[in-house]
Design a protein around this nucleic acid. Structure first.
Lengths: 139, 139
DNA sequence: TTTAAATCTGAGTATTTTAATCAGTTTTAT
DNA sequence: ATAAAACTGATTAAAATACTCAGATTTAAA
């Protein structure tokens, strides 16, 4: 039950973008320096984030990435799903066909419920929330 | 964010044991037949379940496994943790040292909260609950 | 007292997933 | 022109997962 580095690194990168978004597009070189995530790995992650409309890109010299929406309107769930696909404790949660070849097997609904709990929570927390909570810690 | 087959298969095996526990110890051969999980893989899983006191074993001919407690008193969380160790969306949730080498990094508390949500839910559902919910579906 | 059914033990292996790199091409401000 | 940046697709290395294999040990019953 682990979120992969794609999701975790990507989320940290998005938070980094959010904090520094005033100064125009941020190149991945800079995000890489600040987050210590390799630039090439970030490129891979940002391909997904762009396709999912979490960020928009500015190509060429002085280009970089910008958030496509204000941090208040980006849920953590959006970012994680962009990078990892739908969260599912078990494959049977996504497919019609159940894990047990029995369409209403004993444990199927449990995993559906677990997914719902996680989805609801990650959908309730925005990038702005993360930043605010972080600042509150320092007080 | 997936529960491995260890956890999912193990849970199904425990439910199978719970349903059939009246008739004395159940050998893994029989659990294997009913659940379609290979007997050798079940052996591996039941080693963990026994060490975690979820089941007790009766060795020798006519032996098998029994639940160590009534199904009402076994939480799904107990079974999953016995088979997979503590659930953690990120390593930093378990270690003192945070993912970001910064002891209060932006995303750390998020993963702590996710773990808490999952733990609380899986702790609130017992094996007896699973069976009851399953029977209700058939009505 | 042999036999067969079962748990128990530890190793080994094949597959899949994850994490990351590599080698470029294309775009664009200066 | 040049340099800085996004973009693309392939490849590789490492780790985790999902098993299997080959036995040793225990015990009820014939």
């Amino acid at each position: 039950m682990r979120v992969s580095t794609r999701g975790r690194y990507g989320l940290r990168a998005i938070v980094d973008l959010a904090i520094n978004q005033d100064s125009g597009p941020t190149p991945l070189r800079v995000v890489s320096e600040r987050t210590k995530i390799s630039e090439q790995y970030l490129e891979q992650l940002f391909t997904n984030l762009r396709k999912s409309k979490i960020v928009k890109s500015v190509r060429g010299a002085h280009g970089g990435y910008l958030l496509n929406n204000p941090p208040e309107d980006i849920a953590v769930k959006d970012v994680i799903e962009a990078l990892e696909g739908p969260l599912a404790p078990s494959d049977c949660v996504l497919n019609r066909v159940c894990c047990d070849t029995n369409s209403d097997c004993v444990t199927h609904n449990l995993w559906v419920d677990v997914k719902e709990k996680i989805d609801n929570y990650l959908n309730s927390v925005s990038i702005a929330d993360l930043i605010e909570r972080y600042h509150n810690l320092s007080n």
